[in-house]
Structure formats: structure tokens, C-alpha cells
Design a protein around this nucleic acid. Sequence first.
DNA 1: AGCAAGATGCTTTTT
DNA 2: GCATCTTGCT
Length: 770
Amino acid sequence: MSGMKTRNARTDPVLADLNDPQRRAVMHRDGPLLVLAGPGSGKTRVITRRAAYLVHTGVSARHILAITFTNKAADEMKKRIEVLGVAGGMWVYTFHALGVRLLREFGPLGRVRPGFTIYDEADRKRVIKDALAICKISPELLKPEAAQAKISDAKNRLKRPQAFLESADFFEQRMIGRVYEAYEQLLEQRNAVDFDDLLMRVAIVLRGHPEITERLNKRFRYVLIDEYQDTNHAQYLIARHLSQHHRNICATGDPDQSIYGWRGADIRNILEFERDYPDAVVVRLEQNYRSTGNILKAASKLIRCNRRRKHKDLWTDRGEGEPINVWRFEEGYDEAERIADTIVELHKEGRSYNDFALMYRVNAISRGLEESLRHRGIPYKIARGVEFYNRKEIRDTLAYLRVLVNPTDTVALLRIVNTPTRGIGKTTITRLVEAANDADRPLLEVMRAAASVSALKPAAAARVQKFVELIDQLQAFAGGSVADAVSNTLALSGLEADLRKAEEEGGEDRLANVEELVTAAKRYEDEAEQPTLEDFLQRVALTSDQDAVDESAGVVLLMTLHAAKGLEFPVVFIVGLEEGMLPHERSLYEGDVEEERRLCFVGITRARERLYLSHAEQRLLRGAMLPRCESQFLAELPDEVIAWENFDNESDGESSFGDGFIPLDDHRPQERLQRRSSKSRAKRRREFDDEPTFSPDDPTGRVLRLTSSSPYADWQPGMLVRHETFGVGTLQWIRPGDGQTRASIQFARHGRKTFILELAPVHKLQRGSV
DNA sequence: AGCAAGATGCTTTTT
DNA sequence: GCATCTTGCT
């Protein structure tokens, strides 16, 4: 406290260039603090300055713990704190990396042994399948994805299999409980954890061991948590325990940017922070330093449509800026072309390529955009970091390394036993696995004793033995240099030779990829304090898409809206503002459109100067051309800041465009749509030699469900319906409710109307009945 | 055993 | 459309 008075807000460089609320947040000393930070309000600046201020006023850096969600955010924060000269000893981690670090310390308490493996989604799916097999449950009866989601959910709530089974009342629940139990057993056997474990196990240890919690409280006297709106229950508990004694918890975030509810994030954590900590000081950062007035106005008006939120008055002194462009196209193809043309134009006017970002709801959309960019020679990059680590050759190499660190990692072992092929086929593997199960011994041990596995032919056993020798040989490198371990694995396993051969035969340059892995290992060795193969692998497992975003690469960036959080660009294009896309259809069925609106809000507020929102009337999705309807979010934007433009020049021409008016008559019967698209588009699309066909109610032959019991289960946006008074219209969106299924329908002459389907005289238009 | 073609399934977002 | 699994062939 003594140092505080001596610091002058005018002259202190840590405080000088802050606005009032920012300064209040930075200077807050003890007790809970909630910083509600609107987009572009200088949140990161506040966090880093606060850390610096704490240090400058006498807190040792090693008593501060900062937690973020992505590695990129953690690295960024570390860098910025270093610049302020206070990094020494401070912990800056992601929740998951912190989990790894603490679990290693906890050891048996966290139910892990040294060298434990982190299973990613693909590994996890494999284990779920094995668990289903053990429980003798067919994957058709219980889909692996469904089981996985339920188990993940349970782990977020700290529910172990036993507790899960105790509260399971229905058949399905009990089934999932059994799978969960088997799944946990397999992880235990394999000394592996999944992503959720990294949080759940830490939370359980903290909850059950007050002495450990107390020790950590003494070590970390100030806890800063970024993106608090995205915390799930386990993370919430970790944060709470870690600040339980000193209560010096500083949470920063924005409920309006909570976009991870689907994976367990609970927006209530931030909305109810003040209930959890009644003495909390709340600071609102509402001045935006990023976007123009128009962009901010659009974002504010949109997000106001949400009910569950804390209102903030976002403002800027940057002036109105350009109007926001809302573009309508006949087809997704036109959208991509037009955007690429616009980038070329603006580039000629002097904008750098890295001024631009293209954002979309689902990755599948990126393809068309990429093509249009490529044709014009526009350099671009897709923000997808895991892509590298998901390549087959990389996964193969990593699987070898994983086995070296953790010989019980069966998923990895099964992956490499015959990669590259060495004559160990399916039957041999099945027999080995069976023998391992029967003897209840690790698979590698059984392989080691292959000769004594009676079911195996001597020739097969000999090949297996040779493989085990290879592993033993590689094992020698596991304790030394990480890069050496990688390159020796490549050389001795035969992977390298295999890849070289494939390349000579005209394959792509996959050798370069594995060489890049060696480079990554070298880089890691240079950076890490105590490099080990175990740590390298664990870090790799926690690498995500967001981490790969490099804003200064000099290229146009393509990314999902989720990946865009935390970034900003002078020019932003958000594509596919269509019902079913943004908002995503799943949200329409499950009734959480608010999160989609927040996602849209996040996208809009990434833009500094110019913003383009676009949608198309039809789009190629999953190989089928589907009719699309404009997003309800477009109607929620303030008209006065929007410049509407219609590039659908083949439209029926009943109105002129570019004058702020979007024609409402997109109810065109299917025959006409079909004719139009076949006549004018088929030539442009290489894949579409044949006349594209679709039926409005189910273009792909699959039926999408609301809930299986709903009579409107197969209604989906884009389909045609008939209202007894208003005639034929296009379904815009549909939202289930208890006996009150709401739907919005766009009519030819009557505009858009919302109905309760149970009450309104609306029915599905049968094929051919137009 | 191992490969290639064909069938099937699945596709929101990600630590 | 793509990835994965299955089937059938060598």
C-alpha cells in the first residue's frame, strides 16, 4: 500500500495513457475485481498494466498467476508484460496448460503417472469406440459422438462415472454411464487424459485437498483470468479455489462475446460474478478504440436483441466512418468472386493484404473463397494450426514418440505397429489385443512376448518381435535431445524412407512436413526451460487453431468467427449471413440463437474501418445446391448505417437495387429456381455438368430434426410452405418451444411474418404442388 | 496381407 | 465433399 501514493497517474508510464475506468481497474489492489470489457476497449492493456502495477507497487511477480484460453493469448500477454519489465517468475498459462503443470505436481492425487499422454479428439474417439465394444454396445445404438459429448459434459460438472451412474435414471443414461466407466478405465490403463481431465482432475484435487489449495493460494496471491465469459464449471471452480483465501481474483471478459456455450462454457459465471463476490468492484470499459461509429452502432443494435446480458454503452470518438455494406448474391460463387474482386481493388488503392480478414461460421465455407482468391493470385492463409499436426505423416511420427514416452499408450501403439507396413496385419493385431485383454497386461508387453502367444504363427510373431526391438532401440533417444528423438524416429522407423519413396513417385512433399516437425522440436528446445520429450508432446497436444493466426503475415486471413475472437482487422468480410448458417441451424433447433448473435457481434466488432456482410440465395453445401434465406440478424441492424446492395441481377426485377431496398419476393417456386440455376450457372461450375436438382424440403435426402417428437421435425429453413391467407412463402427460421413452435416465413406480397405453427394455418408444400 | 474401389457416414465452433 | 470403414480382389 505504501508505494501506491508515490505513483503519479500523470507521469507514471504504467498509468499515463489510460482512461478513467482503465486506470481504476489497473490500480485496484485487493479483493475481487470484475472488468467488463467491450470489444476494442483495451482489455489486454488493462491486464498487462495491472500486472505491471502490482509488481511496481511491491507484489513479487512470482505471486501472480494469469490464465488465458489460448496459447496465443498467453504468449502475447507474456510478451507485453516483458516489455513492461516485470515478467520474471510470473505464471502465464492457459487453463489446460496450467492443468498439465499442476497434474504433474499432484501426481497420484491427479491419478496420472509420469509421462502421461494427452488424448486429443481423434484419440478420444478411438477410446470411446473401444469402450463401447467392451460394454457390448453397438455404435448404432449409442453414437460415439453422443457418448463423447455426454461424458465431456459430465466431466465439466466434475461427475465421475460412479456419481454419474448413481443419478442415471433412464436406460440411455445408464448405458452412457457404463461407457463412461469403461472409458475411464481405459484411460487409466493407458496413463492418458483427455482435455476435460486436465480441468476436472485439478478441480477435484483442489476441492478435496484444502492444504494443497492453501499452498497454491500462498504461492499465487493475485489471480487474473481473461475471457472469463468462456469458463466452464470446472474452470470456474479452479479459479474460485485458487483465489479462495486471498480473494484477489480479477476476472476480465465480455458476456456479449461468450461463444463457447456449446462446449460447456457457462455465461452465468460472468453474469453472476457479483453474486459470487458481493464485494466485487466492477469496472466497465465502454470506450472503443478500434472501430468506426457505424460499425459500433451496428454491433450495439444487434447485440441489444439478446435478453440475457449486461448492457454496456459502447462508444467511440473516432467518427462515423463508412457505411456498412450488406451484399446479396444469387449464389455463394458470386459472393466469393465479388469479395476477391473487392480485395484486388482495395489492394490497388494501397491497402496491404493483411488488412483483410474473411470470416465464416463453418470451415466448409472456406473452399469457395479460397478458389476465388487463388484465381486472382491474392495471397491468403487459413487460420488452422492443428491442420499441421493432423497430417497423417505428422500423426504417425508423433505416435512413435508417444509410445516412447508412454509405452501404455495403446492408441498410438496400434497406429504405428504396421506403419510403415511391416507385415503385421489385422489378424495378428486382433490376436495380440485379445491376448493382452485376456492377460490384462499392456499391449506392448504382450508384443514383447509374441513368441508365447499361442494364437500367433511363428512368422507373424517374429515380425512383431522385430517391431518391439525397434521401439526398444528408439527408446534410447527418449531421454535426450527432443529434435534428435524426432529425427532418429523418422530414420529408424522407416517412415522417412517411406515418405521419400512416395514423394519420388509423384506424391506431395510430405517429407517436408516431417522435417518441419524436427524444426519445431528444435525451436521448442531453444525456448523451453527444461525441454523434455514428454513436455513437447503435451504442448503439441494443446496446440489449437487460434494459435496459428499470424496477423502480420502480409496475407489475407480466412477464419471461422470463433477463431476471430480477440483479433482486429481494418477490413472485415463476414460471409454466409443466412438462416441455418449464421445463426447455425443447430442453434435454431436447440433454441439458443443468442449465442449465434454474440458470434455475429464478435465478427462485426473485429472490423476497424470497413465491414462487408454478405449472403447468397443459394449455395453449394455438402455437394448440393441449397436455397438460402437471409439471416434474421441482417434485419436487426440499424438501417441508417447500412448500404444495401443486390448483385442478384437475374432476380425478377420488380424493384431497383442499390437504393436500400432488398426485394422480399424470394419465394420463387422451385421450378423457376431450378431453371435459372441450370441455365446460367451450370457452365460456370465444373462439378455441375448435370442439372442440379433439389427438393425444397429435403435437398440431400436427409431430414433434419427439431426434436424427434415434434410434428415439425423435418421443417428446415429454405423450404416452401403455404399459409392459407398469405400464400406460398419461404421458411426463414424455425424455433421449437413447448407447444409453440415459432417460425418466420417470407411471403411474396406480404413480407416476413412470424407464426406459432401449432396455431397458424401453415403447412408444408408438397413436392410438385406449387 | 495389403490394396483399391465402393459404400457409408458425417459435417459448428476447439482447449 | 471428404474421411473413414467395408468389401472384394490379388
